[in-house]
């Protein structure tokens, strides 16, 4: 079975500020990590691989050349192959253009049974890219998967977690699943794999290598949504600040609750 797993490099910290004078984003861009949800996507991929002899996990990512780092990490955790899709013309891609790019990469790699994505990323927080990739590939998708119950030659049975209920779903190959975190325990990178894989080749795919090389379908040009402005969130002007000793502060809080008739 051929498994393709999508991962993404995200900022390690969500502490981004806007300079109030210049409106410029201040962000420590050097500090990056693998999207935490992808660790679960990888773990599930490895478990799926181990259920069928001869299976492989091929991790893919879209990003700048430095995003190779997350692919190396996927090797150290257990990945077999990896490909980076990178091109300056991907700049400014929104969800649709990102999903289209990844679907094109997956088509270019070809011959897959399952595409695995994390439920969402911690920087975009949209959870949209996985389902859009599936639509572009014309394959079914099952979101929020926490477990693989059974695998046959033609499909698998998975458990998905929703708010008020869980679902057991049968899905035929090829398909895409998005993985919810918190149920599997992602494996740690292994030192032995680190030594074995640190020079393992990583495929590099640019726009001209894709099945559809038309630059109008990628990056900002291929993005229906545009960011018109960025601005800091609203502040409340009528905030009251209370300082003092711990006794005074407790009294203040107590009085506030009393005033508003909660105690």
């Amino acid at each position: 079975m051929n498994i393709i797993t999508c991962v993404k490099q995200v900022p390690a910290s969500s502490q981004v500020d806007v300079d109030p004078d210049t409106g410029v984003l201040i962000r420590d861009g050097n500090n990056v990590k693998m999207n935490p949800y992808d660790l679960y996507a990888l773990e599930l991929s490895f478990q799926l691989r181990d259920k069928r002899a001869g299976s492989t996990v091929h991790t893919v990512t879209m990003g700048p050349p430095s995003a190779r780092q997350v692919l190396l990490e996927s090797f150290f955790m257990g990945g077999d192959e990896a490909t980076l899709v990178s091109d300056p013309r991907f700049a400014g891609a929104d969800v649709l253009a990102t999903a289209y790019t990844l679907s094109q990469l997956i088509r270019t790699i070809g011959n897959f049974d399952v595409v695995v994505c994390g439920k969402q990323t911690t920087d975009g927080d949209t959870a949209q890219v996985g389902p859009e990739i599936a639509e572009f590939l014309g394959i079914p998708h099952v979101p929020y998967v926490i477990d693989i119950l059974n695998v046959t030659d033609r499909g698998m049975r998975v458990r998905s977690i929703y708010d008020a209920h869980d679902e057991i779903v049968d899905v035929a190959f090829p398909c895409l699943i998005t993985v919810e975190k918190g149920h599997l325990v992602p494996r740690l990178p292994s030192y032995r794999r680190k030594l074995a894989y640190r020079d393992h080749p990583i495929g590099l795919v640019a726009l001209s290598d894709l099945v559809d090389p038309n630059p109008d379908h990628y990056g900002l040009k291929g993005s229906p949504t545009q960011v018109e402005a960025i601005f800091p969130p609203d502040k409340r002007t009528e905030s009251v600040r209370h300082t003092g000793t711990k006794t005074e502060l407790a009294q203040t809080l107590f009085d506030l609750l009393k005033e508003s008739k909660y105690v």
């Binding site: 929104d94 969800v95 649709l96 927080d125 949209q128 389902p131 859009e132 998005t178 229906p224």
Partner: peptide
């Protein structure tokens, strides 16, 4: 909702249009 967040992107890709989450 959890269903909406799985359904709306599928529709957006089908109609090749933009979608803003949340």
């Amino acid at each position: 909702t959890m269903q909406g967040r799985s359904f709306a992107p599928r529709v957006a890709a089908k109609l090749k249009t933009g979608l803003t989450a949340d």
